[in-house]
């Protein structure tokens, strides 16, 4: 096992991440504006931006799902308990003692177990909750004449709002986490240039050096 600088985030992943960040930011700001929490932009502009950003995000997600499954990178998000306790212990105790983060990135495991679980929950619970309710909301005109439609819309709106609060919470924690362990910059750079320190098996290293030399420094 040796630590190498390896490209772990492809160009698409980085584009996906930052485009998603931007769209979610727009959605959060306009969404909470529509909800009446602030009046930074007019309702009409907020509706337009919110809807446009949501449609773009859905398109982006369609591409990302395709990418995840065709490149088999979905396996990064398979939940595991292995190493979970160490990560928990680190964030609640070890971090204050100046300990080193217990998790080592592997080529086929670029997230620590807590990260993987958090991202998985985001992908399969929070994001679907918000986009399914969002689409139902957007297409209200198509089902408004069903019985009790306004009551359903009320429920849908509340799930949508609750999911928004949870995603906002995720955003705060996610950004804060960048400041832990390594420096903020070190955490950020992999998502910019794609390269991070990864423990490679000799076989992985040999493979990368021979077949994908541009992905390893």
């Amino acid at each position: 096992m040796a630590t190498n600088r390896v490209k772990i985030f492809s160009l698409f992943e980085r584009f996906w991440h930052w485009a998603q960040m931007l769209l979610i930011l727009v959605l959060l700001i306009t969404g909470f504006g529509l909800h009446g929490f602030h009046h930074l932009i007019s309702f009409r502009a907020a509706v337009t931006l919110h809807t446009s950003a949501a449609l773009l995000l859905l398109l982006l997600w369609a591409f990302s799902v395709f990418w995840l499954f065709t490149t088999r990178t979905w396996r990064h998000f398979i939940p595991t308990w292995q190493g979970m306790w160490g990560v928990f212990r680190y964030y609640s105790y070890g971090i204050f003692r100046g300990e080193r983060h217990p998790y080592r990135k592997a080529y086929w495991r670029k997230h620590n177990p807590l990260q993987a679980l958090a991202y998985l929950m985001l992908k399969i619970v929070l994001f679907p909750a918000i986009w399914i309710t969002g689409i139902a909301y957007l297409f209200y005109f198509a089902w408004r004449d069903l019985p009790h439609a306004p009551a359903w819309l009320d429920g849908i709106a509340q799930v949508h709002t609750a999911a928004a609060f949870l995603i906002l919470t995720f955003v705060f924690i996610h950004v804060y986490m960048l400041t832990t362990g390594h420096s903020f910059r070190e955490h950020l750079m992999p998502m910019i240039d794609g390269f991070d320190e990864v423990d490679l098996t000799p076989e992985e290293e040999a493979y990368l050096r021979k077949d994908q030399p541009e992905d390893i420094l």
């Binding site: 529509l34 909800h35 709002t161 609060f165």
Partner: peptide, 21 residues
């Protein structure tokens, strides 16, 4: 008889959400 975005809120959801954030 309508749910009107911007006008209508669930007070408890807003309180819980604000507390969470």
């Amino acid at each position: 008889g309508i749910y009107l975005p911007g006008r209508d809120h669930n007070r408890w959801l807003d309180i819980l959400g604000t507390l969470l954030v």
